[in-house]
Design a protein around this nucleic acid. Structure first.
Length: 639
RNA sequence: GCCACCUUAGCUCAGUCGGUAGAGCAACGCUUUCGUAAAGCGUAGGUCGCCGGUUCAAAUCCGGCAGGUGGCUCCA
C-alpha cells in the first residue's frame, strides 16, 4: 500500500498508509489525544477527523483548547438542533444554521412558529441525540443528485441554496442517524462529543434577511467545550442584564422613555440631565481647544432646504411627516448637515479661511421602525455631537489625522481604550461624486490610520452613497462592542448646495466636507456609559458626587453648613437629613451608586475632621474640609 | 414594520380550576435621635395596559388595538 508523509506541528515527519485519517493519526499518538480531538487542519484547511489523506500533508490536530474548535462545536450543535426539530416536527422545513460569535442559530420554516415552551422539548430531544452518540459522516454528491435528494425530502430551501452554488463546486452532505444536511463542514466526529449546550431564545427572521421574504422561526442556542465555560457565558449574559441601561436608568433616576410622551423620545430627569450637561461641557471645552467653532441651528427647516439637500428624495421614509405653516411645508430635521452648509455659505470663503470646523450638539428626529427602538441606544429624537469640517484637498490628511486623534483622546477620557475600526469604501453601483475624489478620501483615511499604526477592517463597498467612512466601535468593560464614532465624507451636499471657496489662483473650488460625530449621539453614548460603568460613574460626571449623612436630625444644621462649603467649591453634594438611621441612609446611597459619603455626628462637629467613605465601604483617614475639597477636585480633574 | 413572548399599586412581583385583589420596598403619620448596606407600629394607594366578546360571574377564556422585551431588517 502506498504511504504518505505526515508533518506534525513540531516538525516531526511520520509515515502512514495512504488514506489515513486524522483520527488514525491521533490514535497512533495516544488514545487520550484522539478522544479530545474535534477536527483537524490538513494543509491549512479544516477537515473532519475521518478525512482520508491521500498525499503528503502537514497536519494539526484540533482539540477543545484550540480556538477553531468552538466554531465547529457551535455549528455541529446547530445540526443536532435541526435533527431534534425534524424528529419532533416532521413537517418543518430546515433552512440554514450557522455559528455566530459564541452562539449558533438555525432558521426553520414552520406553520406555527416556535414558542419558548418548544425550546424545552427541543432541548430534551437534543440531549437524546447526544446520548445516542451518532456518528457524523460526510459524503460528496453531484449537484443534480443533491437537488433530487432534497427535492424528495421536501426541503425546498435547500434546493434553492444548491441551485445557487457554482456548478464546479463539490457539494457535501453530513449525516448523523436519521438526519442529513447540506453542509460544507467540518463537523465533530459524533453527536456524543457535545459537552454542554443551551437553547437561548426564539425569534423571527426573514429568509435570507430580506423583509420581502417569508418570516422564518429562528432558534438561538449556545454550546461550549465544558459546563464551566457554558456557565461563565450564561453568567456574562446575566451581568449584561444587570448593567442594562434601561434598568439602571430607572434605578438611578436618570431618564425615562414614556409612552405618553411618545416612542423613542427620552425624558431626562435632574440627575440624568446633570450628567448630560457635564458631558456636554467637556465636549464644548475639547472643541474650543481644537479650533472648532460652535454653532446652533433650528429643529425644523423648509421643504426647499431638504429638496436641495436630497433628503426628501433619498431619506424621506426616515423623516417625520410634513408640517404646514402659513402655506409653507416644513420638516423636522433628520440631520444637521444642510444647516451647517448654510452657515458656511453665508459669505464667500477664501482658501485662507480653511479649514473651517463647525460643531453643534444638534438634536435630530428620525422616524425609526418601532421594532428597532431600544432604550437610549436607538431612539427617534437624539442629539448628535455633530461637526462638519470644510477643507482643501491639501488639508485632507491632516484633518483626518486630527479627527482620529481627537476621537481617541475623547473616548479615552471616558475609559474606552479598546476599539475596532472599520473603513467602508465606495459602493459599486449607487454613489455620487467623482471616483477620483472617493479614491483621494479613502486614501487619506487609510494613510492616517496606517501612520497612526491603527489596525482596521475594510468593508469593501460598504460606504454610504455619498461618501466613504470610518466607524469606530468601542469595547466596554465586559467586552461588548458599541458603534458611536463615525467619520464620513460627503460628496453629495457640496455639489447640491454648490459650495465653493476661492483658491490662491482666484478660481472657485469645491471644498471637501467631512461629517463626523464622536459620541454619535448623547443618548447612545450615555447609554453605553451606563452599561460600561454599571452605573458607577467617575467623579467628574457623577450627578451626585458626595452624600452627607448626619447621624441624627440633631446634626442637620451642622451638616447643612458643611454642604454649603462643598457647594461653594463646585462639588455636587446632597445632604440626607431624613429621620432615618445611618445604616439605612448608607444603604440607599450605595444603591444609588454615589461615589463618596461622609457620616456626620458629634465627633465631626467637635473635631472639624471628616472621614470620606468610598462607595463600597472603604474609609479614608480624617481630613478637614479644605483638604477634602482639594482631594475631591483633584480626582475630578484626573480624566 | 415583521415573528415570538410580556403588560396586576410609584417599584419588584404573587394571584390555583372563572367567584369582584395581595406581599415586600417606596410614600405618608406616629414613636425613636440613633455612628457605616434595611428601626418599630400604623395609614393610604389598583377601572388588573385599552376596547370589545363569551359567561349568572372575567385579572383569569376569546378577539382587536396600544406599549414593552428578544430577534429580523435598518442604524447615531
Amino acid at each position: 500500500m502506498p504511504s504518505v508523509n505526515i508533518t506534525l506541528p513540531d516538525g516531526a515527519v511520520k509515515v502512514y498508509d495512504q488514506g489515513v485519517s486524522p483520527m488514525d493519526i491521533a490514535l497512533s499518538i495516544s488514545e487520550g489525544l484522539a478522544r479530545n480531538c474535534v477536527v483537524a487542519e490538513v494543509n491549512h484547511r479544516l477537515t473532519d477527523m475521518a478525512y482520508k489523506i491521500e498525499e503528503d500533508a502537514e497536519i494539526r490536530l484540533i482539540t477543545w483548547k484550540d480556538s477553531e474548535a468552538h466554531d465547529v462545536l457551535l455549528h455541529s450543535t446547530a445540526h443536532v438542533m435541526a435533527q431534534a426539530v425534524q424528529r419532533l416536527f416532521p413537517e418543518v422545513k430546515v433552512t440554514i444554521g450557522p455559528s455566530i460569535e459564541n452562539r449558533f442559530y438555525y432558521d426553520f420554516d414552520t406553520e406555527t412558529p416556535f414558542t419558548e415552551n418548544d425550546l424545552l422539548k427541543i432541548e430534551a430531544e437534543m440531549k437524546k441525540i447526544i446520548k445516542e452518540n451518532l456518528t457524523v459522516s460526510r459524503s460528496e454528491i453531484s449537484r443534480n443528485e443533491a437537488i433530487k435528494l432534497f427535492d424528495k425530502m421536501g426541503e425546498s430551501y435547500k434546493v434553492e441554496i444548491i441551485s445557487e452554488i457554482p456548478e464546479d463546486e463539490i457539494l457535501s452532505l453530513y449525516s448523523q442517524g436519521d438526519f442529513t444536511d447540506l453542509c460544507r463542514g467540518p463537523h465533530i466526529p459524533s453527536t456524543g462529543k457535545i459537552p454542554a449546550f443551551k437553547l437561548l431564545s426564539v425569534a423571527g427572521a426573514y429568509w435570507r434577511g430580506d423583509e420581502k421574504n417569508k418570516m422564518l422561526s429562528r432558534v438561538y442556542g449556545t454550546a461550549f467545550p465544558s459546563k464551566k465555560e457554558l456557565n461563565a457565558y450564561l453568567q456574562l449574559l446575566k451581568e449584561a442584564k444587570k448593567r442594562d441601561h434601561r434598568k439602571l436608568g430607572k434605578e438611578l433616576d436618570l431618564f425615562e422613555i414614556s409612552d405618553t410622551v411618545g416612542q423613542g423620545l427620552s425624558l431626562w430627569f435632574p440627575k440624568g440631565a446633570t450628567m448630560r450637561k457635564l458631558i456636554e461641557d467637556y465636549w464644548h471645552k475639547e472643541h474650543r481647544d481644537r479650533d472648532y467653532d460652535i454653532i446652533q441651528t433650528p429643529h425644523i427647516g423648509k421643504a426647499e432646504l431638504w429638496e436641495t439637500s436630497g433628503h426628501l428624495s433619498f431619506y424621506k421614509e426616515s423623516m417625520y411627516p410634513v408640517m404646514k405653516v402659513e402655506n409653507q411645508d416644513y420638516y423636522l430635521k433628520p440631520m444637521n448637515c444642510p444647516f451647517h452648509i448654510m452657515v458656511y455659505k453665508r459669505h464667500q470663503t477664501s482658501y485662507r479661511d480653511l479649514p473651517i470646523r463647525y460643531a453643534e450638539l444638534g438634536t435630530v428626529y428620525r422616524y425609526e421602525l418601532s421594532g428597532v427602538l431600544h432604550g437610549l441606544m436607538r431612539v427617534r429624537g437624539f442629539t448628535q455631537d455633530d461637526a462638519h469640517i470644510f477643507c482643501t484637498p491639501e488639508q485632507l490628511n491632516d484633518e483626518v489625522e486630527k479627527l482620529l486623534q481627537f476621537s481617541f483622546d475623547f473616548l479615552k477620557a471616558f475609559g474606552f481604550e479598546e476599539y475596532e475600526l472599520y473603513l467602508s469604501t465606495q459602493p459599486t453601483e449607487k454613489f455620487v461624486g467623482e471616483p477620483v475624489l472617493w479614491e483621494k478620501a479613502q486614501e487619506s483615511l487609510r494613510k492616517s490610520m496606517e501612520k497612526m499604526d491603527i489596525d482596521y477592517k475594510v468593508d469593501e463597498g460598504g460606504g454610504a452613497f455619498y461618501g466613504p467612512k470610518i466607524d469606530i466601535k468601542i469595547k466596554d468593560a465586559i467586552g461588548r462592542l458599541w458603534q458611536c464614532t463615525t467619520i464620513q465624507f460627503d460628496f453629495n451636499l457640496p455639489d447640491r448646495f454648490d459650495m465653493t471657496y476661492t483658491g490662491s489662483d482666484g478660481e472657485a473650488h469645491r471644498p471637501f466636507v467631512i461629517h463626523r460625530a464622536i459620541m454619535g449621539s448623547l443618548e447612545r453614548f450615555i447609554g453605553v456609559l451606563i452599561e460600561h460603568t454599571a452605573g458607577k460613574f467617575p467623579l467628574w460626571y457623577a450627578p451626585v458626587q458626595l452624600k452627607l449623612i448626619p447621624v441624627s436630625e440633631k446634626y442637620n444644621d451642622f451638616a447643612n453648613k458643611i454642604t454649603a462649603k462643598f457647594r461653594e467649591a463646585d462639588l455636587r453634594v446632597e445632604m440626607d437629613g431624613r429621620n432615618e438611621r445611618v445604616g439605612y441612609k448608607i444603604r440607599e446611597a450605595e444603591t444609588l451608586k454615589i461615589p463618596y459619603m461622609i457620616v456626620i455626628g458629634q465627633q465631626e462637629e467637635e473635631s472639624g475632621m471628616f472621614k470620606l467613605r468610598h462607595q463600597g465601604g472603604e474609609e479614608l483617614a480624617p481630613m478637614n474640609i479644605k483638604t477634602m475639597i482639594g482631594f475631591l477636585n483633584s480626582e475630578v480633574d484626573k480624566h
